[in-house]
Amino acid sequence: MEIGKKKAQPNLWVPDNKKNFWKTMKNQKILYLMSIPFVVWIFVFNYLPVWGWTMAFQDFRPGRSITEQEWVGFKHFITLFQDPHFYLVLRNTLVMSLMLLIVGFTIPIIFAVSLNELKDSLFKRSVQTISYLPHFVSWVVVAGIVTKMLSTDGGIINDLLVSLNIIESPIQFMAQGHWFWVILTGADIWKEMGWNSIIFLAAMAGVDPQLYEAARVDGANRWRRIWHITLPGIRPTIMVILILSIGNMISIGFERQLLLGNSLVREYSEVLELYALNYGIGMGNYSYGTALGIFNSMVSIILLLLANGFFKRMSNTSVM
């Protein structure tokens, strides 16, 4: 009866919830049974921990119950801002976030563009498949591989550099702090470049081929076609991914740092969450660790909102 509506959305059973709320609810009891238990589940595992943020305002002792905890207001936050180590950790977090953002955002686009320019489709598909490979490997393995590649005995990087006479003796990459940021960024790009290019490649496939032909007739060379057709064609995708990356910027996690770092490079490898882990759980300072966690989340949300607002004004792109 509503053929015209079909094209929009699968709006099959005309909602009669305006008529009678409870009656509809009864009719849809199976749908409720299929979703509400999972909402409760999500509430427990995702939202209940947010309640744990109260710990940051207490002197939390694991043995006591919630009512017995001592409330201390902003004490832990004040300690936090007076802690010199906090600023060191914050620096590491920000520098690595920024490096990961810039490199992790531009390289996949460059890779996708080059891939898009390949005509040979078998070669193209093989390159694609191979480039996804490291994404499926865990960070544990990647850390192992990176350590092996950079090692001083038999690591390919050192062997290459020495045999090309770029350096005289092997460099202890993993033991020198100032290399850490570069190693981490490099490892990340190695692992995720192919995977992150998927979205851009898909967007490029959507660009109208007639545009390329027209440009070609007009005598535009490869670079010009890339610059004036491919890149503008994927601009909306680039924007959305950029906003999402900025939002995720500071929540870079700690898995990579934990696995690639060691105590020799700690001054460069320790990030906020890792500090919270070591100092919070490792040494039992739960309240202080939680305060660190809250600070991390706050900065992350602010960055996301800022990025979203900025790009909304600039280009009417928004993710929220």
């Binding site: 744990g52 943020w53 949300i301």
Partner: peptide, 13 residues
């Protein structure tokens, strides 16, 4: 997708 309690509260939970 936007909210997470963080490491320590999750551990406590």
């Amino acid at each position: 997708m936007f909210f997470s309690g963080g490491l320590i509260p999750t551990y406590m939970l």
